[in-house]
Amino acid sequence: MAEVIQRKKRDFHHVSRGANAVLHTIAAIFSFLCVFPFLFVVIISLTDEKTLATDGYRLIPAKWSLEAYKFVFQSGDTLLRSYGVTILVTVVGTLVSLILISLYAYAISRKSFRYRRFFSVFAILTMLFNGGMIPTYMVVSQLLGLKDTLWALILPLAMNAFYIMILRTFYSTSVPEAIIESGRIDGAGDFYIFLRIVLPLSLPGLATIGLFSTLGYWNDWFNALLYIDNPNLVPLQSMLMRIESSIQFIQQNSANSSLSMAALQSIPQDTSRMAMVVLATLPIIFAYPFFQRYFVQGLTVGAVKE
């Protein structure tokens, strides 16, 4: 009897060996499918341009080459400038949105705030009904005059009622009212309590919101599509869109004018495009495995309680 239970217990923990192999295979294949396109693009970027023209995109190219990366780095200041724009927008944007969201969410989570209902509704309404792309475009470009400025990349993504609701829930579940009360008894002001007590306690929540926000800024191309014409303010993703039609975007905006006509004629056009894609993706590839769990939390933290 004991032996039977023993065996069953193993059954509960483990599927049979054969089934386990099948499951592993399925998961491995799916996981590989998710990563494969990136690897493929890396391979394309390392292919010799001429080989590419005759053979097409091959998994194992007949001839490898680093020319594309050489070219990209030679005229590298375009790539660097776009990196700079993206990093600046991402950092400033994340900070701005964290400040706006955490303050707003905290205020409407406090029962002592007389107008909390009003401001809760004020935020929630924006989730239900929006003016849409064109009126927003008109406000940003005409009324606020943000066209061709970095603010046009930062501000439209700075707030989001959904994040406010997530964070409000987080405050009310993970910051005990008693702590705030004790702070108050000690004579601390609301702002002091927020900074010194509430913020430290809600770091995990803030980290989650902050990372979502970071990802949003890093991957944004839509606002650049609408608002940015100046080639010097083009973020990475948008630059990738522009070189789709002409790789010369890189060279035209490069301060390195030593490229001769002959050099221009031998630009490895297709492989350079893919090299840019690889270079724009690398930071994410390296960073995301470390932050995975926050992204999983994102949905569970606020929207769904266990």
Binding site: S245, S246, I267, Q269
Partner: peptide
């Protein structure tokens, strides 16, 4: 879907 032939013109 090609917006520009300038790449071709440059490369010849």
């Amino acid at each position: 879907t090609t917006g520009s032939t300038s790449d071709l013109m440059t490369s010849g």
